[in-house]
């Protein structure tokens, strides 16, 4: 991993068209400004990882899911109001 030190107001450039500038530092929080082309998505990593974990937890054998979700009685007590 490349490690760089930057001061407030300084920036780094990634490739041809992504720029990350340090806007400010307060305590242990760093505020970043990011300029990137519109086809480059920017995500907070912990959110993306939470969704990946949730997907992995939600996957199952389709036969198992069919059995579980079609089990008689599972929805017989449902009331749609």
């Amino acid at each position: 991993m490349l490690v760089l030190s930057r001061k407030v107001g300084e920036a780094i450039v990634l490739g041809d068209d992504v720029e990350v500038v340090v806007l400010g530092v307060e305590g242990d929080t760093v505020r970043l400004g990011i300029q990137a082309p519109r086809n480059v998505p920017i995500w907070r990593k912990e959110l993306l990882e939470a969704v990946a974990d949730e997907n992995r937890a939600a996957t199952a054998d389709p036969a198992e899911l069919r059995g579980l979700l079609r089990k008689p009685g599972v929805f017989s007590n449902l009331k749609y109001d």
């Binding site: 969704v51 974990d53 996957t59 199952a60 979700l69």
Partner: peptide
């Protein structure tokens, strides 16, 4: 969570559920 798996098949299970089955591995949905 499944970055390399680009083909998934949408099936109807039973109201209100759908299944999304991985074409790469039919045991994963």
């Amino acid at each position: 969570g499944f970055p390399g798996w680009t083909r998934w098949r949408l099936e109807f299970l039973e109201a209100p559920f759908f299944l999304l089955v991985a074409e790469e591995d039919e045991r994963i949905a």
